[in-house]
Amino acid sequence: MSNKPTHDVCLVEENGDKAFFTNVGSAWLKDTGTISVEIRPNLSVSGRLVVSQFEIWPNFSLQPVS
């Protein structure tokens, strides 16, 4: 696994016809074709997750959750 992640992992929360994305981790595309996901420590995640390559949202700035 490379040290640099290839994908963002986001939690999707829907409110009516709007969707809000919160970055909850990173993912790496491995040579075997599988994706390895790492969720940030001490974070409980449930619901829908989206794993997307960084360049899919070139103008989208993800802010860390404190």
Rank of each mutant, 00 (worst) to 15 (best):
Asn42Ala: 07
Asn59Leu: 03
Pro58Ile: 00
Asn3Ala: 15
Glu14Lys: 14
Glu13Trp: 01
Glu13Ile: 03
Lys30Ile: 05
Asn15His: 11
Arg48Cys: 11
His7Val: 04
Phe54Cys: 01
Ser2Asp: 14
Glu13Asn: 15
Glu38Phe: 15
Gly25Phe: 02
His7Tyr: 03
Thr22Asp: 00
Pro41Tyr: 04
Val45Ala: 03
Ser61Ile: 12
Glu38Ala: 08
Ala19Thr: 13
Gly33Ala: 05
Asp8Tyr: 13
Val24Ala: 08
Ala19Tyr: 01
Asn15Trp: 08
Ser61Lys: 14
Glu38Ile: 10
Glu13Met: 01
Phe60Ser: 00
Glu14Ser: 13
Met1Gly: 05
Ser61Leu: 07
Thr32Val: 02
Gly47Ala: 03
Asp31Trp: 09
Pro64His: 08
Lys4Val: 13
Lys4Asn: 14
Glu13Cys: 08
Leu11Gly: 15
Val65Leu: 06
Gly16Thr: 00
Gly16Cys: 00
Ser46His: 08
Asn3Ser: 10
Phe21Gly: 00
Val51Lys: 02
Asp31Met: 12
Arg40Trp: 01
Glu55Lys: 11
Ser61Val: 09
Asp31Leu: 10
Ser46Leu: 00
Ser61Arg: 13
Ile35Thr: 03
Gly25Asp: 01
Val37Ile: 03
Gln53Gly: 09
Asp31Thr: 11
Pro5Met: 08
Asn59Met: 04
Ser44Thr: 11
Pro58Trp: 02
Gly33His: 15
Phe20Pro: 02
Thr6Phe: 03
Val45Cys: 01
Glu38Lys: 07
Ser36Ala: 08
Thr34Trp: 02
Gln53Glu: 09
Phe20Lys: 11
Pro64Tyr: 02
Glu13Arg: 05
Thr32Asn: 10
Asp8Phe: 14
Leu43His: 05
Thr22His: 06
Thr22Trp: 11
Asp8Gly: 03
Gly47Lys: 05
Ile35Phe: 13
Leu49Val: 01
Trp28Gly: 12
Pro5Asp: 06
Asp8His: 15
Pro5Arg: 15
Ser52Gln: 11
Gly25Leu: 02
Ala19Asp: 13
Leu29Pro: 08
Ile56Arg: 11
